[in-house]
Amino acid sequence: MELPPNLFKAAVARGGPQYGIWAGFGTGYAAELCATAGYDWMVIDGEHAPNTVPSILAQLQAVAPYTTAPVVRAVNDDPALIKQLLDVGAQTLMVPMVETAEQARALVRAMRYSPHGMRGVGGALVRASRWGDVVDYMARAHEELCLIVQVETQLGVENVEAIAAVEGVDAVFVGPMDLSAALGFPGEPNHPDVQRHIEHAIQATLAAGKACGILAPLEEDARRYAALGCHFIAVALDIILLRQAAVDTLARYRSDTSSTEPSAGY
């Protein structure tokens, strides 16, 4: 069979903002429900959600029939974990807390087979190669892989030009909440100093010819980032959507419960 196409990579290359949802429940059932809503892409979160490699695999399988393209966020930059995530079929990886070009280059090597990288060979044991059925998988796998590095610290923003310039880095994703904490304004992603750093990261990424993404659950923020040129924007988080709807529904019937205000981040 042919190498499965990376729908996320193709959509981002076409340009225009792609709107995504964060999947934080850690189950295939919830991920599939979100995929039916028609978002362009979905983050299966391995950093802050209660996920393991098997639960991420279950979610990849659950959303496979739908047009929503899965993006798997790893918990860190461990090449052994990256190997496992690629082997179970993740084609787009998001890696948090990338702060230097050297770190970015190491991630590119972790995603590629020798002689261009250090990814271990699973051969016919892995879902990514469809258990050996994909023709020339080892030679062509990189064509449909997509690496998103997260810039979410002051050092990361200082080095964003060099990070974005690394060959094999497909996109930079700005993390407003972590960046706000790193800059001394925790929970204030719209603080002017945080916004200045965010805009710099976006502009530097675009200047390098790479795609830029960001998390923006508030509509005003999402539209501003789209106007700044962001290619992909996460506008919803499944857990927050459920909690907000649950609280708001109860508030309609009980005077001791107040409706919630939408969150600007997690």
Rank of each mutant, 00 (worst) to 15 (best):
R130M: 08
L241F: 00
V174Y: 01
I163A: 03
G265N: 09
V95I: 15
E2G: 02
L147R: 09
P50Q: 13
R196W: 05
N76I: 00
I239F: 03
L241N: 12
A207F: 07
V169R: 03
Y137C: 03
A31Y: 02
V194I: 08
A49P: 03
L85E: 12
T27M: 05
G16P: 01
G89T: 13
G46Q: 11
M138V: 14
I163P: 00
V151W: 07
D77N: 15
E261H: 05
V166W: 03
M177H: 07
V63Y: 04
A49T: 07
A10K: 07
R224W: 13
Y29S: 10
P17A: 14
I198M: 13
E161D: 15
R119P: 04
K210F: 01
A139K: 15
D77E: 14
A164C: 09
C212S: 14
G265T: 11
Q59E: 15
Q59M: 14
L241K: 05
G28Q: 07
S259W: 00
V12D: 04
E199H: 12
T257M: 12
Q103P: 01
V95A: 04
A69K: 01
L57W: 05
A11I: 05
A31H: 06
A216I: 09
L206A: 11
Q18E: 03
E152L: 02
D78S: 13
L85N: 06
T36R: 14
W22R: 07
G123T: 12
T257F: 09
L179G: 11
L179M: 08
D87A: 09
P65W: 06
G120Y: 06
G117R: 08
S255T: 15
R119I: 11
A246I: 07
Q203P: 00
A222S: 13
F173D: 05
A80P: 00
H48T: 08
Q244D: 15
E2K: 13
S180C: 09
V149C: 09
G132A: 11
E158P: 01
P96F: 08
Q18F: 00
E99I: 05
A234W: 00
G20P: 01
A141G: 04
E219D: 13
D248Q: 02
G89R: 09
V63P: 00
T205I: 10
H191L: 04
Q150P: 01
Y225T: 04
L81A: 04
R14S: 10
G168K: 03
L125N: 10
N51V: 08
G265P: 00
A207W: 06
G265S: 14
A124W: 06
A30S: 15
E144L: 04
V247D: 00
P262I: 05
A201C: 14
